[in-house]
Protein backbone atom coordinates (compact mmCIF):
# COMPACT_ATOMS: atom_id res chain seq x y z
CA UNK A 1 0.00 0.00 0.00
CA UNK A 2 1.19 3.58 -0.77
CA UNK A 3 1.38 6.53 1.56
CA UNK A 4 -1.57 8.90 1.26
CA UNK A 5 -0.59 11.35 4.01
CA UNK A 6 2.86 12.09 5.33
CA UNK A 7 3.42 14.53 8.19
CA UNK A 8 7.03 15.45 8.91
CA UNK A 9 8.27 17.35 11.94
CA UNK A 10 5.11 19.47 12.07
CA UNK A 11 4.93 22.43 14.45
CA UNK A 12 2.12 24.91 14.94
CA UNK A 13 2.36 28.06 17.07
CA UNK A 14 -0.18 30.78 17.72
CA UNK A 15 0.10 34.14 19.33
CA UNK A 16 -2.13 34.24 22.34
CA UNK A 17 -2.38 37.59 24.10
CA UNK A 18 1.02 38.56 22.75
CA UNK A 19 2.67 35.33 23.89
CA UNK A 20 3.60 32.44 21.60
CA UNK A 21 1.55 29.32 22.23
CA UNK A 22 2.78 26.02 20.88
CA UNK A 23 -0.21 23.91 19.77
CA UNK A 24 1.59 21.12 17.95
CA UNK A 25 5.19 20.04 18.41
CA UNK A 26 7.28 17.77 16.19
CA UNK A 27 4.46 15.68 14.82
CA UNK A 28 5.41 12.86 12.47
CA UNK A 29 2.72 10.60 10.99
CA UNK A 30 2.52 8.35 7.94
CA UNK A 31 -0.92 7.17 6.85
CA UNK A 32 -1.37 4.61 4.12
CA UNK A 33 -4.12 4.38 1.58
CA UNK A 34 -7.26 2.65 2.91
CA UNK A 35 -6.33 3.04 6.58
CA UNK A 36 -8.91 4.12 9.15
CA UNK A 37 -7.33 6.33 11.81
CA UNK A 38 -8.72 7.95 14.93
CA UNK A 39 -7.01 10.98 16.42
CA UNK A 40 -7.93 11.25 20.06
CA UNK A 41 -6.87 13.26 23.04
CA UNK A 42 -8.19 15.67 25.65
CA UNK A 43 -9.54 19.12 24.74
CA UNK A 44 -6.79 21.50 23.70
CA UNK A 45 -4.43 18.68 22.77
CA UNK A 46 -4.29 19.89 19.15
CA UNK A 47 -6.52 17.29 17.42
CA UNK A 48 -8.58 19.73 15.35
CA UNK A 49 -5.52 21.84 14.52
CA UNK A 50 -3.76 18.73 13.23
CA UNK A 51 -6.77 17.76 11.14
CA UNK A 52 -7.08 21.29 9.67
CA UNK A 53 -3.40 21.21 8.68
CA UNK A 54 -3.60 17.69 7.17
CA UNK A 55 -6.70 18.68 5.15
CA UNK A 56 -4.89 21.70 3.64
CA UNK A 57 -7.12 24.14 5.47
CA UNK A 58 -4.25 25.92 7.23
CA UNK A 59 -0.50 26.52 7.06
CA UNK A 60 1.86 25.06 9.66
CA UNK A 61 4.47 27.16 11.42
CA UNK A 62 7.07 24.63 10.32
CA UNK A 63 7.30 21.09 8.98
CA UNK A 64 5.89 19.50 5.89
CA UNK A 65 2.68 17.72 4.96
CA UNK A 66 2.43 15.59 1.85
CA UNK A 67 -1.12 14.73 0.85
CA UNK A 68 -1.60 12.28 -2.01
CA UNK A 69 2.02 12.75 -3.01
CA UNK A 70 1.70 16.54 -3.17
CA UNK A 71 3.55 18.79 -0.74
CA UNK A 72 0.97 21.27 0.63
CA UNK A 73 3.15 24.19 1.74
CA UNK A 74 4.10 25.46 -1.74
CA UNK A 75 0.48 25.36 -2.94
CA UNK A 76 -1.46 28.58 -3.16
CA UNK A 77 -5.09 28.89 -2.00
CA UNK A 78 -6.57 28.00 -5.39
CA UNK A 79 -4.39 24.89 -5.74
CA UNK A 80 -5.31 23.75 -2.25
CA UNK A 81 -9.00 24.30 -3.02
CA UNK A 82 -8.67 22.13 -6.12
CA UNK A 83 -6.89 19.42 -4.15
CA UNK A 84 -9.64 19.36 -1.51
CA UNK A 85 -12.38 19.38 -4.09
CA UNK A 86 -10.95 16.43 -6.07
CA UNK A 87 -9.58 14.14 -3.39
CA UNK A 88 -10.80 15.14 0.07
CA UNK A 89 -14.11 14.68 1.87
CA UNK A 90 -15.26 16.29 5.10
CA UNK A 91 -17.74 15.49 7.85
CA UNK A 92 -18.22 17.99 10.66
CA UNK A 93 -19.63 17.76 14.15
CA UNK A 94 -22.19 20.47 13.39
CA UNK A 95 -23.05 19.05 9.95
CA UNK A 96 -22.17 22.26 8.07
CA UNK A 97 -24.83 22.15 5.39
CA UNK A 98 -25.56 25.32 3.47
CA UNK A 99 -28.89 26.47 4.90
CA UNK A 100 -30.15 27.99 1.66
CA UNK A 101 -29.52 24.86 -0.42
CA UNK A 102 -31.80 21.81 -0.48
CA UNK A 103 -30.47 18.36 0.49
CA UNK A 104 -29.73 17.35 -3.11
CA UNK A 105 -28.12 20.71 -3.89
CA UNK A 106 -25.86 20.35 -0.87
CA UNK A 107 -24.84 16.85 -2.02
CA UNK A 108 -24.20 17.90 -5.63
CA UNK A 109 -22.05 20.86 -4.66
CA UNK A 110 -18.56 19.22 -4.77
CA UNK A 111 -19.23 17.78 -8.24
CA UNK A 112 -20.69 21.00 -9.52
CA UNK A 113 -17.57 22.77 -8.32
CA UNK A 114 -15.58 20.42 -10.54
CA UNK A 115 -17.76 21.45 -13.48
CA UNK A 116 -19.45 18.04 -13.71
CA UNK A 117 -22.92 18.23 -15.21
CA UNK A 118 -25.71 15.80 -14.43
CA UNK A 119 -24.69 15.31 -10.82
CA UNK A 120 -28.33 14.92 -9.80
CA UNK A 121 -28.43 11.19 -10.57
CA UNK A 122 -25.42 10.42 -8.43
CA UNK A 123 -26.68 12.69 -5.66
CA UNK A 124 -30.08 10.99 -5.59
CA UNK A 125 -28.41 7.59 -5.50
CA UNK A 126 -26.29 8.61 -2.55
CA UNK A 127 -29.25 10.13 -0.74
CA UNK A 128 -31.11 6.87 -1.31
CA UNK A 129 -28.09 5.03 0.05
CA UNK A 130 -28.23 7.07 3.27
CA UNK A 131 -32.00 6.56 3.51
CA UNK A 132 -33.15 10.06 2.54
CA UNK A 133 -34.90 9.36 -0.73
CA UNK A 134 -37.96 11.26 0.48
CA UNK A 135 -36.00 14.24 1.75
CA UNK A 136 -34.24 15.20 -1.48
CA UNK A 137 -35.75 18.70 -1.81
CA UNK A 138 -35.86 19.53 1.89
CA UNK A 139 -33.84 22.40 3.31
CA UNK A 140 -31.49 21.68 6.23
CA UNK A 141 -33.79 23.46 8.65
CA UNK A 142 -36.51 20.96 7.71
CA UNK A 143 -34.32 17.99 8.63
CA UNK A 144 -33.43 16.44 11.99
CA UNK A 145 -29.82 16.39 13.22
CA UNK A 146 -29.35 12.75 12.18
CA UNK A 147 -30.79 13.44 8.75
CA UNK A 148 -28.56 16.48 8.29
CA UNK A 149 -25.49 14.41 9.10
CA UNK A 150 -26.59 11.75 6.62
CA UNK A 151 -26.86 14.45 3.92
CA UNK A 152 -23.35 15.55 4.93
CA UNK A 153 -22.19 11.91 4.51
CA UNK A 154 -23.69 11.76 1.01
CA UNK A 155 -21.97 15.04 0.16
CA UNK A 156 -18.64 13.83 1.55
CA UNK A 157 -18.65 10.75 -0.68
CA UNK A 158 -20.04 12.18 -3.92
CA UNK A 159 -16.63 13.12 -5.26
CA UNK A 160 -15.29 9.65 -4.40
CA UNK A 161 -12.66 11.11 -2.12
CA UNK A 162 -9.30 9.42 -1.58
CA UNK A 163 -9.28 10.62 2.02
CA UNK A 164 -12.11 11.62 4.36
CA UNK A 165 -11.68 13.80 7.43
CA UNK A 166 -14.39 13.54 10.07
CA UNK A 167 -14.44 15.91 13.01
CA UNK A 168 -16.49 14.40 15.87
CA UNK A 169 -19.04 13.08 13.34
CA UNK A 170 -21.46 11.90 16.00
CA UNK A 171 -20.68 14.52 18.61
CA UNK A 172 -23.99 16.34 18.14
CA UNK A 173 -26.19 13.25 17.87
CA UNK A 174 -27.92 11.04 20.40
CA UNK A 175 -26.81 7.43 20.94
CA UNK A 176 -29.01 5.60 18.44
CA UNK A 177 -28.82 8.24 15.74
CA UNK A 178 -25.06 8.50 16.28
CA UNK A 179 -24.66 4.75 15.94
CA UNK A 180 -26.70 4.80 12.76
CA UNK A 181 -24.54 7.55 11.24
CA UNK A 182 -21.36 5.77 12.35
CA UNK A 183 -22.28 2.55 10.67
CA UNK A 184 -23.31 4.39 7.48
CA UNK A 185 -19.96 6.21 7.49
CA UNK A 186 -17.95 3.02 7.86
CA UNK A 187 -20.06 1.23 5.24
CA UNK A 188 -19.64 4.00 2.70
CA UNK A 189 -15.95 4.18 3.52
CA UNK A 190 -15.56 0.50 2.81
CA UNK A 191 -17.57 0.76 -0.43
CA UNK A 192 -15.58 3.69 -1.74
CA UNK A 193 -12.20 2.44 -0.46
CA UNK A 194 -11.51 5.76 1.19
CA UNK A 195 -8.86 6.53 3.79
CA UNK A 196 -10.68 7.72 6.91
CA UNK A 197 -9.32 10.02 9.57
CA UNK A 198 -11.61 10.70 12.52
CA UNK A 199 -11.02 13.25 15.24
CA UNK A 200 -12.97 12.18 18.29
CA UNK A 201 -13.25 12.10 22.04
CA UNK A 202 -15.40 9.05 21.83
CA UNK A 203 -13.36 5.91 22.71
CA UNK A 204 -16.10 3.67 21.34
CA UNK A 205 -15.93 5.36 17.94
CA UNK A 206 -12.12 5.38 18.02
CA UNK A 207 -12.12 1.68 18.78
CA UNK A 208 -13.82 1.03 15.42
CA UNK A 209 -10.80 2.39 13.50
CA UNK A 210 -7.68 0.43 12.54
CA UNK A 211 -5.26 2.82 14.21
CA UNK A 212 -5.48 5.20 17.14
CA UNK A 213 -3.20 8.21 17.52
CA UNK A 214 -3.33 9.87 20.93
CA UNK A 215 -2.32 13.49 21.36
CA UNK A 216 -1.52 15.32 24.57
CA UNK A 217 -0.36 18.91 24.84
CA UNK A 218 0.41 19.04 21.13
CA UNK A 219 2.50 15.88 21.03
CA UNK A 220 1.80 12.32 19.97
CA UNK A 221 1.81 10.19 23.08
CA UNK A 222 0.79 6.94 21.39
CA UNK A 223 0.22 5.68 17.85
CA UNK A 224 -1.06 2.09 17.88
CA UNK A 225 -2.70 -0.35 15.52
CA UNK A 226 -6.11 -1.37 16.77
CA UNK A 227 -6.27 -5.07 16.24
CA UNK A 228 -9.85 -5.21 17.55
CA UNK A 229 -11.19 -2.90 14.84
CA UNK A 230 -12.03 -5.65 12.40
CA UNK A 231 -13.96 -7.45 15.11
CA UNK A 232 -15.84 -4.23 15.94
CA UNK A 233 -16.68 -3.60 12.31
Amino acid sequence: MSLILKVEDLNMNYNSGGRPLSVLQSININIEEGETVAITGPSGSGKTTLMGLCAALDNPSSGEITLLGTKISPLNEDERAKLRNRYVGFIFQNFQLLPSLTAIENVMLPLELQGVSGAEKEAVQLLERVGLKDRVTHYPSQLSGGEQQRVALARAFINKPKILFADEPTGNLDGDTGANVESLMFDLNKDFGTTLIIVTHNPELASKTGRIIKLKSGQIVSDVKNILSNIAN
Partner: peptide, 16 residues
Protein backbone atom coordinates in the same frame (compact mmCIF):
# COMPACT_ATOMS: atom_id res chain seq x y z
CA UNK B 1 -19.27 33.72 6.68
CA UNK B 2 -19.92 30.10 7.68
CA UNK B 3 -21.45 29.21 4.34
CA UNK B 4 -18.49 30.79 2.58
CA UNK B 5 -16.05 28.86 4.78
CA UNK B 6 -17.85 25.63 3.94
CA UNK B 7 -17.81 26.35 0.22
CA UNK B 8 -14.09 27.00 0.53
CA UNK B 9 -13.68 23.77 2.47
CA UNK B 10 -15.42 21.82 -0.29
CA UNK B 11 -12.97 23.20 -2.78
CA UNK B 12 -14.36 26.52 -3.95
CA UNK B 13 -11.55 28.90 -4.83
CA UNK B 14 -11.44 32.28 -3.02
CA UNK B 15 -12.12 34.07 -6.30
CA UNK B 16 -15.12 31.85 -7.01
Amino acid sequence: ANSIALLRCLGMRPGQ
